[in-house]
Design a protein around this nucleic acid. Structure first.
Lengths: 226, 226
DNA sequence: CAGTTGCACTGACGGTCGTCAAGACCGACG
DNA sequence: CGTCGGTCTTGACGACCGTCAGTGCAACTG
């Protein structure tokens, strides 16, 4: 269905290599991330940055859905987490001065704005208080990790899949007729990775959700029943 | 064995209310946390701050072991995570300007140095780059959360208990004869909370570890076999 | 001293998961 | 049109966990 063959290499096709797109920013960082820098459109499957690449800045997800993937040496990749609109990615490796330790890929048509490394530095030099807001993002991420841990310990897989589908429908369902239907932007294997279970188990969870829960999944088609 | 009756209230007995203990700090924050501010000794069971209290500063664990506990309305409490020497706690609520959402309690005799809120502000005004180091701590916490998630998904309960005991022995075992024995600083319920399982299951994991693993636990006595 | 309380361990049962294996479905390709 | 390969599903089996209930033990209490 999708042809990712020409999209495999991150820097050749991500649209961020054109520095003419970058504009200087004055004032606080976060409010201007969607204004001062052009938002670059990404097609489904397009890669923002690859695992092990040098950090070249921070990215603010303006629209769409980004998958953060960890690739093992043997070619197998694991979908670690999702990036939703409004979130900033790449901040961790930016602060730590380390290469990206995950790959970021657009799972649906998305828009992302990238603030290059030197611009972030410039902003922080001029307005140190901006770092406080970035720290806020950091804290949000910690909270989310904690919520993830608690959710894994308390709620069932069926509930977690249901919550995930609700979130995806909220983001991606608007592109369809009535917001109660969408094409699932993830493979079964990726879904299983996100929930921390095996694909076979996921298949049973999907069946359980179809009989007891509000969602029906047939192939890539997701339906929210009344 | 232990009498926590007079230690229940945090502010009355934590040693931090004496502002004469606090000294101004010049230069970077983190290197001075163990120098510029007095390290206050804490007895086992003593409470640094309670859930819902206003944040009065950040704490650096200099020695010992701190338990971060979440208390529900019905009186039940859940041990969420442990604070090890070198770690900073209270940073999250400091940055967010919110009350502490967990209670912090010394699980073994510990030393903690507290940097009061106004001093942190003063330091950050004078040396904005210090915030970067605090952000580093933030990132470490994110990494640890991710590691926790991955560990929960991949390794078995027996392995996770084994790893936890190794870490505890490394910190607390030095207080005993040969570092291969210690008094477990956690109840079975707290241990189960940390591993995300029920106490009954923990009991079986302990039995499994005694027959197949390197640790024997009898009551509060932990033994590392050759 | 008996009774109570709190904590830890054990057993039985049902449910879910991981693993292995087999089958179903579907698009690609010759 | 048939074959191939990949993805998804289904079944059977064993292992583990959560729940419930019961037991043993130690400390405390009147």
């Amino acid at each position: 269905m999708r042809d990712f063959s020409q999209l495999q290499h991150p820097c050749g096709n991500c649209g961020f290599q054109d520095q003419s797109l970058w504009q200087p920013v004055s004032g606080a960082l976060l409010p201007t991330l969607n204004r001062g820098f052009n938002r670059v459109p990404l097609e489904t499957g397009q890669i923002l940055f690859g695992q092990g690449e040098e950090n070249t800045g921070i990215y603010c997800i303006s629209k769409g859905l980004i998958g953060m993937r960890s690739c093992q040496g043997d070619g197998r990749s694991t979908l670690l987490r999702l990036g939703y609109p409004g979130e900033i990615i790449g901040f961790r490796s930016f602060m730590a001065g380390q290469p990206h330790h995950t790959e970021a890929q657009a799972l649906i048509p998305s828009r992302v704005c990238m603030v290059p490394r030197h611009a972030v530095r410039q902003i922080l030099d001029r307005s140190p208080e901006v770092l406080g807001r970035l720290a806020d993002r950091c804290i949000q991420e910690i909270d989310r990790s904690h919520a993830h841990i608690i959710a894994a310990a308390t709620s069932s897989n069926t509930e977690r899949l249901s919550d995930l589908l609700a979130k995806l429908l909220q983001i991606h369902g608007q592109d369809y007729a009535d917001g109660r239907r969408m094409e699932l932007p993830l493979s079964r294997a990726d879904l299983a990775d996100l929930l921390g279970i095996r694909p076979e188990t996921l298949s049973r969870v999907v069946a359980r959700l179809a009989s007891n829960g509000p969602y029906t999944i047939r192939g890539r088609e997701v339906l929210l029943r009344s």
